[in-house]
Amino acid sequence: MKTNDLIIQTTTKLVFFIIFLFSIHIFFAGHYTPGGGFVGGLLMSSAIVLLLLAFDLKTVKEMLPVNYTVVTAIGLLISIATAAGSIFFNVPFFTHVYDYFNIPLLGKTSIHTAMFFDTGVYLVVVGVTMTIIQMIGGDE
C-alpha cells in the first residue's frame, strides 16, 4: 500500500528528526535525569515506526538502509565488552568507572563506562524493536 499523503509525509520527516534528537538527548541525560538506554531506544524506534506509518516499508528501507539484526548484535557486543572489560583491570566483572573531564564547548562532563553499556542497551532495543516490526510488517 503506497500512501501519498503529502502533509503527513512532510510533517513526519520533521517530527522524525525531533524525536530522534529527543531520543539522543534523553539517552545522554539518563544518568542524571529520567531517561536512559531503554527509553532512548524505544523513542528512536517509535520515530522509525512513525516513518513506516507515513511511508511504506520499502521506502523506509531505502531511506534507512540498516540491517537491524546487525544493530542488535553490535549493541549486545558493546554491552558485554563493557562489562567484560573490567576483567582486564583485575576487578570483578561489571565494575564501572567514571571521571570528570573538561571538554571544550560542553564544559565539565563526566565520562562513565556505564554510558557505553547503556549505548549497547540503546542499540539492542532499537535493533530488536525494528526487527520485530519489520518482520511482522513484511510478512505476507
Binding site: 542524571y32 531517561g35 538506554g37 561489571f94 564501572h96 542497551v121
Partner: peptide, 25 residues
C-alpha cells in the same frame, strides 16, 4: 549518577540488564 533507577539498571544490577537485552535478542 543522579537518576537512581537508571544507575540501578546499568550499574548496580547491570547483570539483569545484560541478560534482559540478551533475552530480547
Amino acid at each position: 549518577g543522579g537518576n537512581i533507577v537508571n544507575v540501578i539498571l546499568v550499574d548496580y544490577r547491570g547483570f539483569d540488564t545484560l541478560f534482559e537485552i540478551s533475552v530480547l535478542t
